[in-house]
Design a protein around this nucleic acid. Sequence first.
DNA 1: CTGAAAGCGCTTACAG
DNA 2: CTGAAAGCGCTTACAG
Lengths: 355, 355
Amino acid sequence: MTASVTSFDVARLAQVSQSAVSRSFTPGASVSEITRRKVLDAARKLGYRPNAHARSLITKRSRIIGLVLSQLENLFYPAALQQLAERLQRDGYHVLLFVNRNADADADDLVGEILQYHVDGIVLAAATLSSSLARQCADASIPVVLFNRVMAEAGTRAAHTVSSVRSDNVGGGRAVAHFLADGGHRRIAFIAGNEEASTNLERERGFREGLAERDLRIFARGVGNYDFAQAQLATRELFAAGLERPDAVFVASDHMAFAVMDTLRFELGLRVPDDVSVVGFDDVPQAQWHSYRLTTVRQPIGPMIEATVSLLQNYLRDDPPSPAENVVVPGDLILRQSARGGATPSAQGGGDARL
Amino acid sequence: MTASVTSFDVARLAQVSQSAVSRSFTPGASVSEITRRKVLDAARKLGYRPNAHARSLITKRSRIIGLVLSQLENLFYPAALQQLAERLQRDGYHVLLFVNRNADADADDLVGEILQYHVDGIVLAAATLSSSLARQCADASIPVVLFNRVMAEAGTRAAHTVSSVRSDNVGGGRAVAHFLADGGHRRIAFIAGNEEASTNLERERGFREGLAERDLRIFARGVGNYDFAQAQLATRELFAAGLERPDAVFVASDHMAFAVMDTLRFELGLRVPDDVSVVGFDDVPQAQWHSYRLTTVRQPIGPMIEATVSLLQNYLRDDPPSPAENVVVPGDLILRQSARGGATPSAQGGGDARL
DNA sequence: CTGAAAGCGCTTACAG
DNA sequence: CTGAAAGCGCTTACAG
């Protein structure tokens, strides 16, 4: 093992002080152009790069953002992950990843691990945060952003130190209700995601409100827990023989909606949308696929990531740090062919319509 | 901003030396149970956790693995990412993520950034590595594992310092050829992924060899570059009016195979598998979905991740470090309903068959 | 602009 | 088992 090369090695080769080496790698530091050139030359020869850990020890900035994820099988999250990582890389930050399979469990443990790395910020796209950990982050001046969720305990102290970014779930749910009601549906079912998740709670609330505004209510309800297989089961129950069948289903996520459509078509022999309309939520890339052409509420990932990064950076830039914020990004209902009243099917596909 | 709490703060509160605090957090260090308890108590009260950066400066181990990814829209990679992160977390390692959208470009830049963090290992699941960077990693004793790819320049020095893990792409390609030929197909097309990628090269080679063994050759060929939209285009060209149509298509990835099936069915009005058989590669979760029921070659993610982590850990454990290895994990052809000669369709779905 | 020196928060010989 | 001290590789006042 060749020992790793340090700024002293570079200094020796470049015939300058170690401080000069450091300055040459610090944007804005005062070094003459000639010194910097000597240093950079020597550094290149030796393959030197400043040690990020040593640097972070002094600057108190690790340029690392901790990200907690689960639900990677739902394509909304890989897409968000990719955009977040790219966006942060452009600003010289990097993502330290933490995965937990059982959604809301263990979030505290993971954040504990994250804290060891003295990350500059934390993005939680799985689970939410306990109040005690939220306070620890606040004490350590580490901004926390909940991505696609909000804190359950709205009034608590924790809620004042933790930001959140989400799309307008309530508005989206309401728009779906109006769309289905106005499309002539009368037996409108709902398949929930994780019943405790804020996304599901808000979507369902908006949906109920929207139906009420049309003098309707949920005709039947199942729970899919944001899982493909569970959504299949829920569909079978909702459409069990002997029961009066729903004429439309609002599903709390696209990922589950695909399961619903497959079950309707291939197990139950029903046509979508002729027999049953299906509407999802997220607008993942697969929603456009011709096998599904899913009418759904788009969660605009770009703006959501942009808001997340702004929140993080405002906090890091400002002194005293800017307060927590709850950002809601509007989303559109995207009309495709999985629900009656949507866009008219065209031969070639293409044209999504927005409401 | 509350200053972050250090081992000295804990030492003061616990009435012990700073060394004792450090030892209490070091597994196997010699501390009396009573001292450790005092320390842990004080640490909990203060919310203390050892600073990972300071620790890594001394131990020369960051417990961070750098991971370079692109192609996140292909569900094979999110699944692999999730398993890798979970597996490493169990051993106290964490994943620092680097995303590059334009596949093979900029891999060197990214690895340069990674090196600053003095990661304990690098997994490349996108792009491959230049020889110069490979040498830098070797000099710094950082093991590199190519995931789902191999180095192009087999004979070079770099190839001796960089390990790889992949499934048996050649064998998989050959199995598909035999399966399609034996199923009575005679006009068998191929849609390539990224033509320079080792995965594509190997799958195509095995496929050609397998066809040759049945006195056949590729009937028509398109390039999808592992991209959904490009695979659509390739399909349109392969099945353009006026040409004699393929009776089977082997597609270099599942992700593209979905595009192929959709195009065949909904644009060209062909039945799968009655008019055209389609076979993919990867066995991503969606391949099981009832809309596709894709016959495909499974890349076994579990064993591939296991091999990746073993390679990393063997290298880190051994002194002198264990040499680079190229691991090939076998994969099975999974028979579903997208190709003739496969499993017979069952009413309820379920039963995948293996060849 | 430049160098010598202090110090970030730890681990680990070293001596007791 | 325990503590004092050195040192990991940096950045940044400080003095010139």
